[in-house]
């Protein structure tokens, strides 16, 4: 027997940058489209709409995610932070400031996603998460420094067609350094990019 058709719209409440937004959504609406088309939060960018570029990266429950593959209705109850929510008032987040100072962008379209991703990369590394660039993933090997190679691997889900990668890695390294206690740094003050070859 055919099931009763279920509604294709829901009224949901999204918690974004500390504010609650209640809105009816078509279940097809992605979090990305809800942000951009419904809530006028256009800082989150649509590059591919298929999870293949990272431009739409936001933080969901503190973790980075691509909002183009996240249905808005399934994001209800989660804590969402977008690029509009990472600065403290007029004070830029250290990652934002580093991108600005070191020219970690050109056209700027991938930039909000890169910045949200970078904020999470620094936290993931601090939490001890390994990456594909980590030589020894066993916990007994300890936490390895956030080298340029580690940053590159961890940031690889964010494409930048202008090719600003080198400055982005420098910016992430600088912001990560600033976020760490002085002894736990990943190298000298120039960031890690000059430190070693890539392979």
């Amino acid at each position: 027997m055919a099931p009763a058709p279920s509604p294709t719209y829901s009224a949901i409440t999204l918690n974004i940058n500390g504010e609650k937004h209640t809105l009816p959504v078509d279940h097809r609406t992605t979090l990305l489209d809800a942000l951009r088309e419904r809530l006028d939060l256009t800082g989150t960018k649509k590059g591919c709409d298929q999870g293949q570029c990272g431009a739409c990266t936001v933080l969901i429950d503190g973790r980075r995610a691509v909002s183009c593959l996240q249905l808005a209705v399934a994001a209800e109850g989660r804590v969402i932070t977008t690029i509009e929510g990472v600065a403290e008032g007029e004070d830029l987040h250290p990652v934002q400031q580093a991108f600005l100072d070191l020219d970690g962008y050109q056209c700027g379209y991938c930039t909000p996603g890169q910045i949200c991703s970078a904020i999470a990369v620094i936290e993931e590394h601090a939490a001890g998460w390994p990456s594909a660039a980590t030589q020894d993933v066993r916990p007994e090997a300890g936490v390895q420094p956030l080298t340029a190679e580690e940053i590159r691997e961890r940031m690889s889900g964010n494409l930048c067609r202008c090719g600003a990668y080198v400055s982005i890695v420098e910016a992430v390294a600088q912001a990560a350094e600033a976020a760490q206690p002085p002894s736990g740094g990943s190298g000298d003050g120039n960031g890690a990019t000059e430190a070693e070859a890539a392979v």
């Binding site: 830029l92 991108f99 600005l100 100072d101 930039t111 909000p112």
Partner: peptide, 11 residues
Amino acid sequence: TRVEGREKVTG
């Protein structure tokens, strides 16, 4: 630094 830089890094 880019004159529109702040707009770009804040979305």
